[in-house]
Design a protein around this nucleic acid. Sequence first.
DNA 1: CAAGATTGAACCATCAATCTTT
DNA 2: AAAGATTGATGGTTCAATCTTG
Lengths: 161, 161
Amino acid sequence: MATMNDVRWLDESQQRVWRAYVVMQGRLNARLGQQLQNDSELSLSDFGVLVQLTDSPDARVRVLELARSLQWEKSRLSHHLGRMQKRGLVRREECPSDARGAFVAITDEGRRAIEQAAPQHVETVRRLFFADLTDAEVATLGAAFTKILARLDPADPPPTP
Amino acid sequence: MATMNDVRWLDESQQRVWRAYVVMQGRLNARLGQQLQNDSELSLSDFGVLVQLTDSPDARVRVLELARSLQWEKSRLSHHLGRMQKRGLVRREECPSDARGAFVAITDEGRRAIEQAAPQHVETVRRLFFADLTDAEVATLGAAFTKILARLDPADPPPTP
DNA sequence: CAAGATTGAACCATCAATCTTT
DNA sequence: AAAGATTGATGGTTCAATCTTG
């Protein structure tokens, strides 16, 4: 087990980058959430769900698949869908092939909501995130995020790969 | 007001980078939170509060200043401090110079908690975030995050600067 | 009245337990 | 028993209202 004395701390530049990341990520999330909520009465979570449904060919998806692609717990998704259904944004449908399963479908109202919200959201992303970055920086961010995602995927946290 | 037709969407590489960022950030937060909670019974929020208190010369900070540096709402901080106080991690102290104000101080137990948690947390950050990045990539991330933070700071979202 | 901070209600997320179908 | 999904309880977050002191 690691103690205070045998730990390799982050070096100075890593420290700076990590702090910047933590703060940036927190503020950016807050801003994006506020903008969506103020302009469209949607939370970032609502938006994520609606994007997945819109991307889907039939405008409907199995609940478990939705949970996988959002990386949410089943329980969280179930509660969230309940609230979105109560607001008329989505609808639950039965699954013919497997009676245990269920579909979620986007409603007309849900479609109107995301179509109204998306342009302003994209503008905000562009203005807050991409505005001052060069093409080379964007490319490097992409490469870095992809590597980090690969580290994150394995699904088991404890063992050092 | 923007409509679906006059919006500039993100180009393909921006799309990829943005999706990667959103997913990466969500999973990384989840992992870091789970690791802290499992190994040290602290949430990321608890950790953030304790870091600020530890960084402070007197191990105590005015509540409002803490709210500023964490970028939290007063209300959220107040509720959170209440719970942390109940767990013995922090203590509230009166402010002599301004009787409206209050100090928060870290307790011995709080100090033990963060000293126990920090090494494993840092190891996790190193393993999940920095492990596969080159020095050049880290430098570019730092530059990019700093620019984005500058965009985020101005405090007023609506007007296009 | 404004500033510093706390409180209560409503909403969201997480965990364990549950229910139904395979 | 395991898979797909929902539910209830508990703790976390936000918003508006409140309280006290400057």
